[in-house]
Design a protein around this nucleic acid. Structure first.
Lengths: 351, 351
DNA sequence: TTGAAAGCGCTACCAC
DNA sequence: GTGGTAGCGCTTTCAA
């Protein structure tokens, strides 16, 4: 059996730089240069090394390379959610699509980590601390998660998606205030003057920001703020339905509603239907998220679209930037939203 | 500033074995023993080392450890599907749940890899080839994917979920023949004698196996095989609906149908409704997968449940076994299915 | 343009 | 029990 001879479908043995160097009759350093595409190698040498690499089926050992360079060329995406939510929420596939697009182009390996238990969290912490990834993307953070702080203190590059729980950490977020404003401006622009809102739970930044946007748009248009037009809710359909019924009792002259999510807007539609109001003739409705729900309700919902893929792309870009040029000051990217007008606010059929 | 002094919330600097050894006044070898929980260390020494570890906030560098041990203590799960499918199919969360359960217990890090493009595939191949993971779990394989073969030839431990495309590779599969048999036996047991089936695409093992199970159950009951009762389809609702309509034309006396998936069974229900047949009085229906669809159709579907979490668990167990005790002969695990009876086949309400 | 050699941080073998 | 030390495979000065 001839050593180093590889025939089709033969087992691949895994050679080392050393072996390639010997086969090509050069030093390890030279092989390293060729493999890494550095210059200062003569064409002839380069070619003979490349042939040796080919012949031996050489693949660099990334672990060894990592030890030497202190880079892994991989990036971790941490999503601390149970598998059912992780795979159930339509947000994540879009986010991952954006992230992997950018990372692929940069030739980085994306590693998805979804700690399911306390033990998992601990292992994750060790994994990351041991510099198994060049940087970490963090989304869907639980309120008091110590992870961002820990990573920060370890000096590991981090980018958070959404509103960060602590100061001084890079993040990418969506401008919820602007998003809500665009929705309410649209309603006002349609000539509506009694615009109500149903908010999410106000201890969440997304919810209070959207309420803030609603109020600003009203003020900007010179309309009075009327607490009878504001109902505090939760991101649930049933809660929103009830809240809407109560709003109608308090203020029967409502002619438009901004709901803080599509799911909630669906509940609003139910309540309006039961109350005999026509949408959009009597009451115009706008939701938030532009999720699948938006186009499947009757009538289809106007909604504020979040640029989820863009968010993923920006997170990845920001992380790559932070990795290559670390900076003590946190950077942030705030993305704009886009209003998609459908029939619930009297628009023509959209998309 | 006192070196090595860590106060709460102070940055963590990342010390080395060497530093810990110096701080504890022992050798690196001894620190290594303590850190790895080996014996042959005196209690006193152990304790002083542990204090030094604590004080310095030492975390072992896994890259260095990997290089020395040739282990990474992580396992890759490769799912070559687009993000939308990956996050859309209810199969994956259940599988991942099972896998991570076992891996967590074994203190292995699960790394999810979902190549989205050709480039991703290539990078993945390199990643795995460079021994970045101790072993690989492969599911949802595309027919002619070279990955299993390549990994095998590289000697990387692999376990495939489902029917493997090549010989000689460890795998965990579900017994589709038995599953289909149980469904059809059930229908026959209800007194049905004209049992039809709508298959999936017959170039997929799952589809042909289920057809095989259908035929066997018929034969076993002494019923004739009637090609007018077999329709070849695809795993799509619309296709199944049309196929069912044609079946009804060909064989109006059909009194039961076994569909190769729940989605297809939903199409069957539509066709039957349009034809004015009552389910289950006129025609009993059984689907396959016991997915969410099964309990949301009208009437709810009897269905063959796949033990998806178990499949994940078995895959992980098998891989761990292969990693710790390699063997030239491929191992396999075949899991049984379970029939869940609901109203579409005249059962009482189930779950 | 090329090579020699010093690490990267850890494990594991062999002495003591 | 403990320490010395030779690697693991690669990158990266520094000289030549």
């Amino acid at each position: 059996m001839q050593k180093g001879r590889i025939v089709a479908k033969a087992p691949i043995v895994g050679s080392t730089l050393e072996e390639v160097a010997a086969a090509a009759g050069v030093s390890r350093a030279t092989v390293s240069r060729v493999v890494n595409g550095l210059d200062r190698v003569s064409p002839a040498t380069r070619q003979s090394v490349q042939r040796a690499v080919e012949r031996l089926g050489y693949t660099p050992n990334r672990v060894a390379r990592s030890l030497a360079t202190r880079r892994t060329d991989s990036v971790a995406l941490v999503i601390p959610e149970p598998a059912t939510k992780l795979f159930g929420d339509p947000f994540f596939p879009r986010l991952v699509t954006g992230i992997s697009e950018v990372l692929s182009a940069a030739d980085k390996q994306l590693v998805l980590l979804a700690p399911q238990t306390q033990d998992d969290e601990a292992r994750l912490e060790r994994y990351l601390a041991a510099a198994q990834a060049d940087g970490v993307l963090l989304v869907s953070l639980h309120g008091d998660d110590p992870l961002p702080g820990d990573l920060l203190r370890r000096g590991i590059p981090v980018v958070i998606g959404g509103r960060p729980p602590i100061e001084g950490v890079n993040h990418v977020d969506v401008d919820n205030v602007q998003g809500a404003m665009s929705a309410v401006r649209h309603l006002i622009g349609l000539g509506r003057r009694r615009v109500a809102t149903i908010t999410g739970p106000l201890d969440m930044a997304v919810a209070s920001d959207r309420l803030e946007g609603y109020r600003r748009a009203l003020r900007e248009a010179g309309l009075p703020r009327d607490s009878a037009l504001e109902a505090t809710g939760a991101f649930e359909q049933e809660v929103a339905r009830r809240a809407m019924s109560e709003l109608l009792d308090r203020a029967p002259d409502i002619d438009a509603v901004f709901a803080a999510s599509d799911l909630m807007a669906a509940g609003v539609l139910q309540a309006l239907r039961r109350a005999g109001r026509h949408v959009p003739q009597d009451v115009a409705v706008v939701g938030y998220d532009d999720s699948l729900i938006a186009s499947s309700t009757e009538p289809p919902l106007s909604s504020v679209r979040q640029p989820t893929e863009d968010m993923g792309r920006e997170m990845a870009r920001l992380l790559l930037a932070v990795i290559s040029t670390p900076s003590p000051v946190a950077r942030r990217v705030i993305l704009d939203t886009q209003l998609v007008i459908r029939q619930s606010s009297g628009g023509e059929a959209a998309d």
